[in-house]
Design a protein around this nucleic acid. Structure first.
Lengths: 113, 113
DNA sequence: ACAACGCACAACTGATCGGTTGTATATTAG
DNA sequence: CTAATATACAACCGATCAGTTGTGCGTTGT
């Protein structure tokens, strides 16, 4: 149960790698929605939508709050930002390559003098 | 074969939902790597690594360039940014909710006057 | 009280995934 | 020319995925 950051990244990207789940995220980021309110929007069974919500919840992309017999799902914008941050880190790796290439060019110019 | 943006989003998030593939992305963003140079870094067969590279290539996250008998893989930072942009769009949906809540508060205050 | 609603969960199914081994093909080194 | 290298790809396998149906259980409306 070593819940390292790679496990979390796996869960986050996997959760977002499905168009139904991305659509659910749009809805619950726009405002809390009950599971059944979400379910009527998709051409699949209630249970299927409920499982999608569960995947998003386990990944930490949404939280549920009970309200009577309904379960209200709210998108967690911080989780979305954490995914964006992972991509920023990837981009930083690329910037490192560019910086190294620039250094190479600079040292070549030195030699040409 | 309607290659819409949702198909592309599926492919991009799916490609990134595996730690080996994310690690490959770090390496090929830092600099072009042959498939076999990548393969020696992981405790799995060459064919397995090659399939991971193929998944990343199909998603557009890296490109391959032949150099003799080697195939040099380079990370495409623009594809990484396009994923980041999708997350920004999600965050904008959330900002819309906040804006609407703010309006509600504002109109409540109007009524309280 | 009780019928309808909202949700959770289990069991099942076909499809996809991540890995393997084996084979084929092109390129390079000696 | 031949052997070794680098890659591609097919076939296979167990695990996971995305969907289904069915069952159960707490909550609400009448």
């Amino acid at each position: 149960m070593a819940d390292n950051s790679e496990d979390r990244a796996d869960a986050l990207f996997h959760a977002l790698a499905d168009r139904t789940r991305r659509d659910i995220m749009r809805r619950v980021l726009a405002g809390a929605q009950s599971v059944s309110a979400l379910a009527v929007k998709y051409d699949m069974s209630f249970a299927a939508v409920q499982k999608h919500v569960a995947v998003l919840e386990k990944a930490g992309l949404l939280t549920k709050q009970r309200s009577g017999r309904e379960q209200l799902a709210s998108g967690d914008v911080e989780a979305v930002r954490s995914v964006a941050f992972m991509l920023t880190e990837l981009e930083q790796v690329w910037r490192g390559r560019i910086a190294r290439i620039d250094e190479l060019i600079a040292s070549d110019l030195d030699q040409e003098d």
